[in-house]
């Protein structure tokens, strides 16, 4: 359209329709658009979520500061551990604590109190936040029939990845970022060399991302089953707590019973500890060995995590890719 023609236009045309002459962005951009939009909207519309987020950040901050302060007043006695070993155990324990629910999974052999208190309660808040944010991600779209609009612009796979990414991004803020901050705070508090234990920080990032991915997958699968966000949220949260409680509730906490493996969130923590090279862990005050041929063994933990992963993927695919739904 020429400039002359434009100058004669009415108000409507002046502010109205015009041709798009730019370049369309690639598919990844659209997935990120889905992820970002859903993340922001999920947080924005829920006051409770915002409140929990603030509470969680302060909780992490206070715990870490507390550890540093206490370690100043309780001089470290270097027998039988070195300060570096204590740092590694304390950090691993703290990060594992973020992903273990009812069962207290710890790698600290000597019950060193200041470090044991880190991350207590964080896993509950994280799980609750995930349930609140993730519960409505697909359920709301199905309720308001927004899926039709999505699928007329992007593929189902892009939609699924976008939604998954929004939850993983959320978890990044809620547990991955705190795990990184904790690394620096603990390192500062215990005066260890940052670079010597840098592998531990990458483990923390990888482990929390893996946990975020698996739990995001499950909550999304739950969300895709129903049109009611409350149903998805409560089902996920209650299921995670109940499954996690069996081990303690059935009076088996003092054994190596395989009931422990029902705690699928805890199983991720066990896998994380195994990945770091621990061959035994303290669970609810009792040592569990991964390679002693009794009860819970390493391959079982891997199998449980894989089964949860596969079930989550299958459930999502079955509901989302049923194209005529």
């Amino acid at each position: 359209m020429s400039d002359d023609a434009l100058s004669d236009d009415t108000y409507i045309r002046k502010f109205g329709f015009r041709r798009f002459t730019g370049v369309r962005q690639n598919r990844v951009y659209r997935i990120i658009a889905v992820a970002w939009f859903n993340l922001i909207e999920a947080i924005r519309r829920s006051g409770f979520t915002k409140m929990l987020l603030v509470f969680m950040f302060f909780s992490i901050l206070i715990q870490d500061v507390l550890i540093i302060v206490i370690s100043w007043f309780l001089p470290f006695i270097g027998d039988p551990m070195t300060i570096n070993e204590l740092f590694r155990d304390a950090y691993a324990d703290s990060v594992l604590g973020m992903v273990s629910l009812v069962n207290r999974i710890t790698v600290l052999q000597f019950g060193f109190m200041p470090f044991n208190i880190s991350s207590v309660g964080i896993s509950f808040i994280w799980l609750l936040l995930m349930a609140i944010v993730g519960g409505g991600l697909i359920a709301d779209d199905r309720l308001h029939r927004t899926t039709e609009v999505y699928f007329s612009r992007i593929s189902r796979l892009e939609y699924m990845i976008g939604k998954l990414m929004s939850l993983i991004l959320f978890s990044t803020v809620v547990i991955v970022l705190p795990s990184i901050i904790q690394y620096f705070l603990l390192s500062y508090g215990l005066e260890t060399d940052l670079l010597v234990n840098i592998d531990l920080m990458f483990w923390g990032i990888g482990f929390t991302l893996l946990a975020a991915f698996i739990l995001s997958l499950i909550i999304l699968a739950m969300s895709s089953f129903t049109k009611r966000r409350a149903v998805a949220t409560l089902t996920f949260f209650i299921a995670a707590i109940v499954m996690s409680s069996f081990y303690s509730a059935l009076g088996l906490a003092q054994s190596e019973s395989m009931i422990l493996l029902l705690d699928f969130v805890g199983a991720i923590a066990l896998l994380g500890a195994m990945a770091l090279g621990y061959e035994s862990l303290d669970i609810n005050g009792r040592d569990i060995f991964f390679n002693n041929g009794i009860g819970v063994e390493g391959p079982m933990v891997i199998a449980v995590v894989l089964v949860v992963l596969v079930l989550g993927i299958l459930a999502l695919i079955l509901t989302l890719f049923r194209r005529d739904s």
Partner: peptide
């Protein structure tokens, strides 16, 4: 954005 418009372009076109 879902149709591939860059953020600024999408916002401008949404206004229009």
């Amino acid at each position: 954005k879902l149709s591939g418009l860059a953020s600024v372009e999408a916002a401008q076109r949404a206004h229009d």
